[in-house]
Write a protein that binds this DNA or RNA. Structure first.
Lengths: 127, 127
DNA sequence: ATATCATTTTCGCAAATGTCTAAATGAGAT
DNA sequence: ATCTCATTTAGACATTTGCGAAAATGATAT
């Protein structure tokens, strides 16, 4: 049975709130971590796309030029370049020029580790 | 300098491919991991949203009813319910009925650990 | 049965996303 | 200087996403 505090705590949504002090406490907790959440969400958005995951896994084996990445992915060079840019803009990839070629590589080993870790999370859930 | 193999490997995009055998090898590698990537991307898409991250962090401190979660988030109960459902559909949240109330809680400790880990990745990048 | 109320679902819309085609840029080669 | 070619950028389009408003559901109480 719910503890019936039933106090309106927020003027925005006029819905009963059952555990007002608990809600207040949790909101206070969240404020502390809130500053990191937008960045964390951005990282996850970036990783929430099979194409970009493939790029990271491909580059995990060493650097590649844009057109070779495109061949690995089976999509346009333009689309590939676009996705590479997104990963680079957030600092997860580095690039190197060699003549007219541009070679990309993974800039953060930590990211690959995190990927592995999250993969394990999925695999153990299948069990 | 690029090793000039310059062989068209894919009929889809008619662009030169520079390291054909390397591309072929990497594609072969990717095939092995490819089956996990859609699920992994789904997980990341799910986490790539500040509202849902807040939900997970809020519920990390214990179960809450829908309307209290809504108060913590400062959004509609309907929107809250929607996001809770997304998290539940992928098996990361569990729910419990008590009268007309529905209480949600985190179903996977592993997920919270992964979150922490990925947070650390971000923090060490700031340094 | 009816009323009440927490939750869920449906609908609609504004914003974001992923890929393509085509044009622009940049660097070597003739 | 001009040409070639790898890459990037711009524009367009279809798809997806997040949220609010309103309707539907489910469960308790009267």
């Amino acid at each position: 049975m719910a503890t019936s505090a039933k106090v309106i705590v927020s003027p925005v949504c006029n819905v009963t709130c059952f555990e007002q002090e608990k809600v207040a406490r949790i909101k206070a907790e969240l404020v502390k971590e809130e500053h990191l959440l937008p960045q964390l969400a951005e990282l996850y958005k970036l990783l929430g796309n099979v194409t970009r995951l493939k790029i990271l896994l491909a580059l995990a084996q060493g650097e590649l030029c844009v057109c070779d990445v495109a061949h690995v992915l089976g999509i346009t060079v333009a689309a590939t370049s676009h996705q590479l840019k997104l990963l680079r803009d957030q600092g997860w990839l580095a690039m190197r020029n060699d003549g007219k070629m541009v070679y990309y590589r993974v800039h953060s080993e930590g990211l690959l580790k995190a990927l592995k870790g999250d993969c394990c999370l999925l695999e153990e859930r299948l069990a």
